[in-house]
């Protein structure tokens, strides 16, 4: 039985459909990657799973519970078992790195300060930022901030972690380390991971299953190997990052020629 079961998901922003009938299964202990062109709604999907947004139709079940039928306190209990790495990091800017990572522990546990200290340093060590513990978030680079946020997302030892673009803004070395880290944590801590990413190679390295989303639908799903062998032109273009093909790079619109022409006419 999957840990997360998404059925017939519909979600609209105003009149614009973000999801139209999406079905996704995310299995325990696996790394599931969600990929798709920018603006397809990957972040939105994570927020729907976390219960921050409400679907217009369809259900999302996490660990057997329908996320959007839970009471507030039940939802908060569930969230304690979900870690989330925000695309922007979302660190608290008024407290230093150490306190940011310690934040969930201090809010949800009664652990003595000495133990919190050790736990936090271990997590920071894992992301290679133990030396940055006294820096304020404003003193971090984007990539560093994201790694701190990653450490924070796993401080409570959750059952699952959602990574929203963990690799963006990382140099090749820390990228390699992060890929390894996500892989190792998934195995060692018996996690279930959802990775949203554009980095095809890195993601393909660690993902067990990849879902490709576009225009509100799941275009393709399968293991990295299956996707690479896929006969679909769409999938091939995306996986190889080719500029020409059926994947729309542009936000849906009238054709460029029409747009330019229209302006000339009105001028």
């Amino acid at each position: 039985m999957p840990l997360i079961k998404i059925r017939d998901l519909h979600f609209y922003r105003g009149d614009r459909a973000i999801f139209e009938g999406v079905n996704i299964d995310i299995y325990r202990g696996k790394i599931t990657a969600i990929m798709g062109p920018s603006g397809t709604g990957k972040t939105t999907l994570l927020r729907l799973i976390g219960g921050q947004l409400r679907p217009d139709r369809g259900t999302i079940e996490v660990d057997g519970q329908d996320v959007h039928k839970l009471s507030r306190s039940e939802l908060y209990e569930l969230r304690k078992r979900m870690g989330m790495l925000f695309q922007s990091g979302a660190l608290l800017t008024d407290i230093p790195v150490f306190d940011n990572v310690a934040f969930p522990l201090r809010e949800h546990t009664d652990l003595p300060e000495s133990m919190i200290h050790d736990l936090v340093l271990m997590k920071l060590q894992a992301v290679g930022l133990r030396g940055a513990r006294d820096l304020m978030p404003s003193e971090l680079s984007g990539g560093m901030a994201r790694r701190v946020a990653l450490a924070r997302a796993v401080t409570l030892d959750p059952m699952m972690v959602m990574y929203d673009e963990p690799f963006t803004g990382q140099d090749p070395i820390s990228m390699g380390t992060l890929v390894n880290l996500i892989h190792k944590m998934n195995d060692a801590m018996d996690l279930t991971s959802i990775v949203v990413s554009h980095d095809v190679t890195e993601t393909a390295e660690i993902a067990d299953v990849i879902y490709l989303l576009s225009e509100g639908k799941v275009i393709e799903k399968g293991s990295p190997v299956q996707l690479k062998r896929s006969s679909s032109q769409w999938v091939q273009q995306f996986m190889q990052g080719l500029p020409d093909g059926p994947v729309p790079f542009h936000y849906s619109n009238v054709s460029l020629a029409d747009d330019l022409f229209a302006q000339e006419e009105s001028a």
């Binding site: 976390g50 908060y76 969230r79 925000f86 979302a90 800017t93 969930p104 949800h108 924070r152 409570l156």
Partner: peptide
Amino acid sequence: GLMKSTEQLSGMEMMAVD
């Protein structure tokens, strides 16, 4: 307002802190 726009409030919610 800045905490909201930098997703700090939403981040807190996801950490189960109201």
